[in-house]
């Protein structure tokens, strides 16, 4: 039992990231409320960033900002952090685009429930 607990604690970031990814993924797929869909998309992407950042982190080392000592063994791995930054830029722009779309539909139909919007659009077509 204590072995199990120890490995849970050792891999807490990875486990948390996978759980969050699942939550985000399922909600992005099944949620009817469009705003909640956007939130779950952000949860999903953040979980990946958490996973990535935790992989680059090495216990006891510092951020790779070179001030004097040019010794790689002092620093954490900077590449995952760079990837996270790129990923954040991507997910921010996607969220902005998504929000703009939802706003348009809300102005027209007065609801953010996707099922209702589809029904209203169908009625309109008839």
């Amino acid at each position: 039992m204590s072995d199990f607990l120890q490995s849970v604690i050792a891999y807490r970031f990875e486990i948390g990231a996978v759980i969050l990814f699942g939550i985000g993924f399922i909600n992005l797929l099944l949620q009817k409320n469009l705003i909640k869909k956007i939130i779950s998309f952000n949860v999903m992407d953040s979980s990946i960033f958490l996973f990535l950042a935790s992989q680059g982190f090495i216990e006891g080392r510092i951020a790779p900002i070179i001030t004097g000592a040019n010794d790689a063994s002092l620093y954490i791995n900077p590449i995952p952090t760079g990837l996270v930054l790129t990923g954040i830029v991507v997910s921010v722009s996607v969220s902005a685009f998504f929000l703009a779309l939802v706003q348009r539909l809300y102005k027209k139909y007065g609801t953010v429930n996707f099922d209702e919007i589809i029904m209203l659009a169908k009625k309109e077509a008839e």
Partner: peptide, 30 residues
């Protein structure tokens, strides 16, 4: 309104796809 609704559908499915791709990529990098 119809094309915007279609876009949202498209966007959601695409985001699911790119989420899966990204986590696969991250695991591969690790």
């Amino acid at each position: 309104a119809k094309t915007i609704a279609a876009t949202i559908r498209y966007l959601v499915v695409s985001l699911l796809g790119s989420g899966l791709f990204l986590i696969g990529l991250v695991l591969l990098y690790c």
